[in-house]
């Protein structure tokens, strides 16, 4: 992409509302890497929860809104594997194809595949483990990209998460419709996280992090959950600080 790419940020409704620090980190990171970032105010939600719960008709206008809102960008970046998957894999089926759908990237894909960087100049002196999240892994196929990015972070003590590819049990409304099964899955995921001795659990999706983090917080484990963007945005000059 010649010159500074004009990137639309699709914050996702969850991150916009509950985890603004993640979206601020994406802006900081992408600007540091030379992108022009814009946040079109017309955006709301990709419709994933409606769609996955069986309310397809409610998701359809949201796909149309998305196509319109992000029509003019070189690329759209979403800090979420599941929303990215919804947009790229499902929106075309709901709305017909649109450039905004094909140009949408999950953050690590955008960094590695589009910008071609793995070392983003980050500094993060903490013990971290990474949960790959199902939709990033299996729907988008981001593979090892997040780990490549993390390995290049200075000061990081990155430890492998056992049974990393197992679902954390979130699954959108699954977490409440099948709360018992979801909790059983969460329990095993937390055990694996705690086994690593990490102080920070990271992932590329705040929905899974909210789920695992909700459990880790309830049990007062002291483990913090932190989106990949926030680790990558952290530098020696401006290191990450736990504020919300």
């Amino acid at each position: 992409m010649p010159g500074a790419p004009r990137v639309g940020l699709f914050a996702t409704c969850l991150t916009d509302t509950f985890f603004p620090a993640t979206a601020r980190a994406v802006v900081r990171l992408l600007e540091r890497l030379g992108c022009t970032v814009e946040f079109p105010m017309e955006q709301t939600c990709c419709g994933q929860m409606h769609y996955n719960t069986g309310y397809r008709d409610a998701a359809r206008p949201l796909a149309a809104d998305y196509a319109r809102t992000f029509a003019g960008y070189d690329a759209v970046v979403a800090p979420s594997g599941s929303c990215g998957g919804m947009i790229r894999e499902v929106h075309p089926e709901l709305h017909g194809s649109a450039p905004a759908f094909t140009h949408t990237y999950e953050l690590s894909e955008f960094l590695v595949d589009v910008l071609g960087v793995t070392d983003v100049g980050a500094y993060f002196p903490h013990r971290v483990t990474y949960h790959p999240t199902c939709h990033s892994l299996r729907m988008l196929g981001v593979g090892d990209k997040p780990l490549e990015l993390l390995r290049a972070v200075r000061g990081i003590d990155l430890v492998a998460l056992p049974e990393a590819e197992s679902c954390c049990g979130f699954g959108g409304t699954f977490a409440v419709k099948n709360a018992d099964t979801s909790t059983a899955m969460l329990g095993d995921k937390m055990r694996c996280v705690l086994d690593t001795g990490a102080e920070v659990l990271s992932a590329g999706d705040n929905s899974c992090l909210m789920h695992i983090g909700g459990g880790l917080s309830r049990l007062r484990t002291g483990v913090t959950t932190l989106h990949l963007a926030e680790i990558l945005a952290s530098t020696e000059e401006e290191p990450w600080a736990p504020t919300r």
Binding site: G213, G214, R218
Partner: peptide
């Protein structure tokens, strides 16, 4: 209810004072 099905086993983060959207504006 129905949020209780979530909070039976998991906390919910407190919503921040300022959404990303408000920060951007």
């Amino acid at each position: 209810w129905p949020g209780s099905k979530w909070t039976a086993a998991r906390d919910v983060p407190a919503p921040p004072a300022e959404s990303f959207r408000s920060w951007w504006r």
